[in-house]
Design a protein around this nucleic acid. Structure first.
Lengths: 234, 234
DNA sequence: CGAAAGGTTGACCAAGATCAAAGTGAGTGG
DNA sequence: CCACTCACTTTGATCTTGGTCAACCTTTCG
């Protein structure tokens, strides 16, 4: 018999009865430089992980969606910032409790390792994008990436579900630019280019509709992250 | 009493009696698409992890040095290629044996987790570089990165050791370019620019000397990865 | 010695950055 | 309710960095 279609990774149960923190857009969950003593799991909303250089240049390293967690580091202080993009709820757990949950439970360990590998693979995708793809290609990948996470967060089984064609963009153009290694002007122009080519329609600046999914995937040159990336350990 | 200055992570002992494979430059250890059933640890030499798109664009995702290991994925097939840059020796271990080594040994697990976190943090550094830094800055970071690994691989305790100023570049200009998201011509010109500014001297195309470490670090805008990145779990 | 591969340099080009101005829309206070 | 403001977005003009194309140089290797 099959398991649930969108199972939570087993080790995430440490967050089940953990205290919950509510965040408003722009509110900081983790400030760079503070002690790395907690782990957080995203229950709802969207967060953003950023790193800013001394000269002010900022790179958005990742957006965080439901059941993405954050807070594990090799150092004892965070070297990045995490802030809310939309109103968000996060469960808070000490590193100690988290590590205790993993210890002596091989199933939880396996699930955790698999999640780590997936996170690492997502970063490798990002490196490929930043190193090799053009502005329009990066934006295409980004839209498919949001669609993908929208699908997981809302547990929409059918990849062809029309709801998935409406992509919300709660972050600013500058956030997108800092994620894609571009400027906000180039992001704006690239949206225009995708629209002119008939791949998307802009409802307003924070809501686009995918008009030609096939062509968007073709441009992105990825398989839409189609391979299952959130499986529990069997 | 203090431990050794450059301790190997404890879990690496799975490779101690594993079969060793010798590789010549250019020889492929892992071909993209093959089943992901082994884990490899670099005993000596340098390897290169790459991903190539359908249209031929290639991104070098990482160079691998002593005690860097590779082969763990969330999928059951590799989606990247690993080949030797210099003559290299790698220890080969099945995933099964590797996972068995971790299971029920909390110390090995902790050390493994810490290594995973460091790998992830290195990828985040790469993302920041590709997204925000200029060609010359990326090259400066790259030279410091090679210096850093040279130091770890050869267990040179003193950061001021003059041997560290001689940096070997066994890979081609194109490999460097594909790592930094540039072209080989731009890499070549950027070497020229660093030399004209007095930061480096080119002995030949595969050997440069760092002439002004302080200025190179300033340009790179990093702390030379000075924070300890290879600690064993205590 | 000759061929081939890799590296450097130069001239030109184009993608994207920068600078500037105008448009949009969600609050806020009168 | 409306006008004002401020932040964000879009668009246009221009500039710069790095890419492209091509020639030439250097080293290696047969």
């Amino acid at each position: 018999m099959a398991g649930p279609l969108f199972p939570h990774d087993v080790f995430l149960d440490v967050f089940d009865h953990a205290p919950v923190r509510n965040l408003q857009p722009g509110e900081v969950l983790i400030a760079a430089g503070s002690p790395a003593d907690h782990v957080y799991n995203t229950l709802s909303g969207m967060l953003m992980l950023t790193r800013t250089g001394r000269d002010g240049r900022r790179q958005v390293l990742s957006f965080l969606f439901r059941d993405n967690f954050v807070g594990l580091t090799s150092t004892d202080h965070y070297f990045f910032t995490v802030e809310a993009v939309t109103p968000a709820r996060v469960a808070c757990c000490t590193r100690q409790a988290f590590n205790a949950r993993l210890e002596r439970d091989p199933a939880a360990e396996r699930a955790f390792h698999n999640m780590m590998y997936r996170v690492l693979e997502d970063m490798l995708d990002a490196v490929y994008s930043l190193g090799q793809r053009s502005a329009a290609e990066r934006l295409a990948v980004f839209l498919l990436y949001l669609r993908h996470w929208h699908r997981l967060a809302d547990e929409i089984a059918d990849d062809g579900d029309p709801r998935l064609n409406d992509v919300a963009l709660p972050m600013t153009r500058e956030d997108i630019a800092d994620f894609l290694g571009l400027t906000k002007e180039t992001v704006s122009r690239s949206f225009g280019a995708l629209e002119r080519r008939g791949l998307i329609r802009r409802r307003d600046s924070h809501q686009v509709q995918i008009a030609d999914l096939g062509a968007l995937r073709e441009l992105a040159g990825v398989l839409d992250f189609a391979a299952p990336r959130r499986l529990v350990a069997h």
